[in-house]
């Protein structure tokens, strides 16, 4: 029942995200996520990536997998590397099915989370399938129930876009031009 419900939420999220030019995948384990990410990055010709550590990356041995695929992984000095890195990989907290939206709500408002997901031309986001929330309204309630509202809460829905010139939709202004979202079913404890 729970699985069916999550699948339904996932499908809704995927449809919404694809509607705003994002890419959406779902895998069973952290290790499979690593495999998928490698393939996606090789396909896009990514040569180096800024990766913000989280338990899921250790669990799936993801950093090693990426390095083995011949891609350079930066895990620190983000202020220097993110302006020129080919891509950024981060784990985000929640996903809203209603609108295909990712939610960054780290309790410590980690600035690197934002650097790795905003300055890079391609953002790859990992999120637990169980972190899917049905509506925006429920998401706001959930954030409000946290011990305190995190210093920075970021909603991300698709890549950066503008219609400021002649109302023509153009993807990729200040933020990423591509957004890849990978849902992972396997539960990994987040250390907050």
């Amino acid at each position: 029942m729970r699985i069916d419900h999550l699948t339904e939420l996932y499908e809704r999220f995927k449809a919404k995200l694809e509607g705003v030019s994002g890419e959406c995948y779902r895998v069973g384990t952290a290790s499979e996520a690593g495999e998928l990410i490698c393939n996606v990055m090789l396909e896009k010709g990514i040569k180096n990536v800024a990766l913000l550590k989280a338990p899921i990356f250790d669990k799936g041995n993801i950093t090693y997998q990426i390095q083995s695929a011949g891609i350079k992984v930066y895990t620190d000095h983000f202020r220097e590397v993110t302006p020129t890195a080919d891509a950024g990989i981060t784990k985000v907290n929640y996903a809203i099915a209603e609108s295909g939206t990712l939610v960054q709500a780290d309790a410590d408002a980690n600035v690197n989370q934002r650097l790795c997901s905003t300055l890079v031309p391609i953002h790859i986001a990992l999120v637990s399938t169980s972190a899917l929330i049905t509506t925006l309204k429920e998401t706001m309630a959930k954030l409000h129930q946290l011990p305190q509202i995190p210093g920075f809460v970021g909603f991300i829905t698709g890549p950066s876009r503008t219609s400021d010139i002649e109302r023509v939709l153009t993807i990729g202004v200040h933020g990423p031009k591509q957004l890849v979202v990978v849902f992972v079913d396997e539960q990994v404890e987040d250390v907050i």
Partner: peptide, 26 residues
Amino acid sequence: ATGQQITSYVSMVTGPTPAYYSDGTV
């Protein structure tokens, strides 16, 4: 405003957050 479901970004800021200073410290 623009006929969008939601904008690409919604940012909620509560109090100061960490930032990089010119000397490299956070």
